[in-house]
Design a protein around this nucleic acid. Sequence first.
RNA 1: GCCCCCAUCGUCUAGUGGACCAGGACGCGGCCCUUUCAAGGCCUAAACCGGGGUUCGAAUCCCCGUGGGGGCACCA
Length: 495
Amino acid sequence: MPTPSPARVRYAPSPTGRHHIGGVRTALYDYLLARQTGGQFILRIEDSDVKRLVPGAEEEIRESLRWLGLQWDEGPDIGGPVGPYRQSERTAIYADHAQQLLDRGAAYLCFCSPERLAQMRQDQQKRKEPPRYDGLCRRLSPEEARQRADRGEPHVVRFRTPREGTTTAVDLLRGPITVDNATIDDYVLLRSDGQPVYHLAAMVDDHLMGITHVMRSSEWLPTFPLHVLVVRALGWDEPVWVHLSIFLNPTGKGKMSKRQAVDTKGGAKSIYALDLRDLGYLPEAVVNWLALMGWSYDDRSELFSLDDLVAKFSLEKLNPSPAAVNFTKLDHFNGIYTRGLSDEDLAGRMLPFFQQAGLAADRNTLIRLAPILRERVRTLEESVEIAGFFFRTDVEPPQEALTGRGMTPQASREALQAALACLEAAPSLDPKTLEPALRSLADELGLEAGQLFGLLRIAVTGQPVSPPLFETMDIVGRETVLARVRRAAERLASL
RNA sequence: GCCCCCAUCGUCUAGUGGACCAGGACGCGGCCCUUUCAAGGCCUAAACCGGGGUUCGAAUCCCCGUGGGGGCACCA
């Protein structure tokens, strides 16, 4: 296999809200390409719009990437050779490049007020015309523009898009995309406060940071030709452009959104990376799940660790069509990875969830629990629902559940008392000896094993559904088991 | 309204002109195992959006429809 040249790839999110799985997938692919080629994975924060900044958002981005194991090589927190890595700290760089465009006549100063622009757009709308800058200031002479600017008149810098001809931009997944230049607006590059807009900032940064492959959401496709024009106007070579498909809601209707991120069967899920962590999903599962939403390896494999992905990822196998998020499949992957965990590992990961629920769980008990929980929990959080009774002092079985299947309360009580005697007489709660003993007891009582076991299950766990009864009783411990069975029999007596 | 992108089972997808009466996975249904719930095993149902071309031959190439999605800010 030929060795690919090292790719410098960047993930450039905006800290304007919570970090969702669409961004995470982009970061994943960035990471994979960088690691596979021995290049660098760069984290750049696109915070050029101060008005939209959300406190804590940048930290959430970093925390979720760390959680998933996507460590960056250069970034705002660790620096690097081409920093700073926060756009808000690069204002002078953008101003300088805007000036270059001005000098070359590829951009011009625009003095139109926001009010005039709004009015203009409104009129265009009324006339059923596409909303676009009407070019009023484009006709200004450079001298006049200079004078007005010098006088302190507020202005922005606009790109002077060619009025004629076409522009062809090449996307790796879609091939050449050609548009009429007449349909490309004279976009604002620099705001009146001197801050850059994405169209300028991202192009400048990608070039200055030596980015070889730009992977971004296909929401950028409409302005893709503009970006190519800006890069060319600056006299630079283009990177490889890869526009990733967007995520659709589980229903397949519309772009993935917070409101509709609800699975039909599995209940409400979240599209935010950190929520998935808090819901008890394993990072391995999330990575595997996300990797396969828009990328595939062959017609058979679907289980990939992060390292597998580094080895097998390829841009050629990326899929340009939008994908609906499927939380049910996440559950599936989570189950697979959970079952693959060692007892110690699983215990360690469950522990915080029990603590979160206010239960005094301890590592050692969780390690004993791991074998009987492993194939039953969909998420780590679910382990608390299933196994919380191990750590509660008392269980409170619902009154109506106390009576055995097809049995009267009296018969249930008698069965429980017989079982209690059997348990008290047993030298230990070792499942190997206890199960045969209780089975023959059921026989003597003329009950099915399931009837008796069901009675004990509800008495000991408080739940109609639980991990296997005998292993459970062994871990719960003799004293507690006896107390709970006794208590259930007493409650039955009062019925 | 204008511009752009996409189009294989419900969903994620394999498929790059013949090896496809279209393969895998999730989910669904059934059976087996079974003390509950799971897990596991086996089996079933389920798709090439439509119409024209090109070709000996099309899920695969081209065109037109249709459908879905995205975008049209001094947001990213």
